[in-house]
């Protein structure tokens, strides 16, 4: 497939937005300005961007604990995201959810998730509703390699196929679940080998190549939209930072060389080189884009820092749709 230069810039922009947001979040966390856990998406930008670039605004996605990238790629607002990470009342979840539960249902982003594997069944539900209403919307379940070892994932994949739902299973295989390498927890190398067992097609793509991811996503999303049922994409990728936070905490579980080799394949820089080589863009174009988006991030940090914390009376608000319940 050939993609227009506008599409290429669109995919690039999504990736840079994720990178800048995550780098900023990482810096704030290291300065102890962000409470709680922070699972950064740096290194994996091509996956969320390539997939979400194939979706319409009213399509749905479910996410993981590593969810900022998915929300940014779906069009998430920096200000409300940064405020949420700081636990402020102006955040996406009014400070109640934080990094691990960041969500924007108006963008079809049905939440980051603190429970590994829990997003996939929810994507199946969204796909069911989409088929039920018949408006041609598609759902995408983003999930990690490690999450395919949990029952919820298997049940979701099987049900999606049994009910022939409009869904794409998008695997981010970064070769680790927390601090344990994939080969300690699975006897197969490629997650996509599982797809056949559920009765859906699957492809492996280079998850550091946004065009490769996008191509596979366009095909899978079209299949789902046309009534062709579920399919799986396995993107081979890598997270550049630690499982949570930035620095390696505790014991070393992967070698510096391994990290360095993957960093050479940085999905953004390699794509920029390619766009320049192909005469689609100039270095100056990219400088402008980074500068513009950096300003957005700086504004978001300012916005978040200036925002108030929620007040304690908010603790019991939003437990139910209306204010009833026990106490």
């Amino acid at each position: 497939m050939d993609f227009s230069s506008a599409k290429q810039f669109d995919l690039h922009r999504r990736m840079v937005r994720i990178r800048l947001f995550e780098e900023a979040a990482g810096r704030l966390a290291e300065a102890n300005k962000l409470p709680g856990f922070l699972h950064l998406y740096v290194g994996e930008e091509a996956v969320a961007s390539g997939v979400c670039g194939a979706l319409n605004d009213d399509d749905h996605i479910t996410s993981t604990h590593r969810g900022h990238g998915h929300l940014v790629a779906k069009g998430g607002d920096f200000n409300r995201m940064m405020a949420e990470l700081m636990g402020k009342s102006t955040g996406y979840c009014k400070g109640k959810g934080g990094s691990m539960h960041i969500s924007d249902t108006s963008l079809g982003m049905l939440g980051a998730n603190g429970i590994v594997g829990a997003g996939s069944p929810i994507a199946v539900g969204a796909a069911f509703a989409n088929k039920y209403r018949g408006r041609g919307q598609v759902a995408v379940a983003f999930f990690g390699d490690g999450s395919t070892n949990i029952g919820a994932f298997h049940e979701a994949a099987n049900m999606a196929c049994a009910l022939h739902l409009p869904i794409v299973f998008a695997c981010e295989n970064n070769e680790y679940g927390e601090f344990t390498p994939r080969d300690k927890t699975m006897a197969i190398t490629d997650v996509v080998d599982r797809a056949a067992g559920y009765g859906m097609p699957g492809v492996i793509v280079d998850g550091m190549d946004v065009i490769a991811v996008h191509e596979a996503a366009v095909e899978a999303v079209e299949r789902a939209r046309q009534g062709g049922g579920p399919s799986m994409i396995e993107a081979k990728t890598y997270r550049f930072y630690n499982h949570h936070g930035v620095q390696n905490l505790g014991l070393k579980y992967r070698s510096d060389e391994e990290v360095a080799v993957w960093k050479l394949r940085d999905p953004i820089f390699t794509f920029e080189d390619r766009m320049i080589e192909n005469g689609v863009a100039t270095r100056a174009n990219f400088d402008d884009i980074w500068a513009e988006l950096r300003a957005d991030i700086d504004n978001a940090i300012q916005f978040a820092e200036d925002s108030p914390y929620p007040t304690p009376d908010q603790i019991t608000v939003n437990v139910y749709t209306s204010m009833t319940g026990a106490n």
Binding site: P35, G36, G87, K88, C93, G95, K96, G97, G98, M100, H101, Y309, P310, T311, P312, Q314, I315, T316, V319, G325, A326, N327
Partner: peptide
């Protein structure tokens, strides 16, 4: 604790 899930924000959790 009050009848709600555990809130994220330190401003809420410390009161919770």
């Amino acid at each position: 604790a009050p009848f709600s899930p555990v809130p994220f924000s330190p401003a809420l959790e410390s009161q919770y």
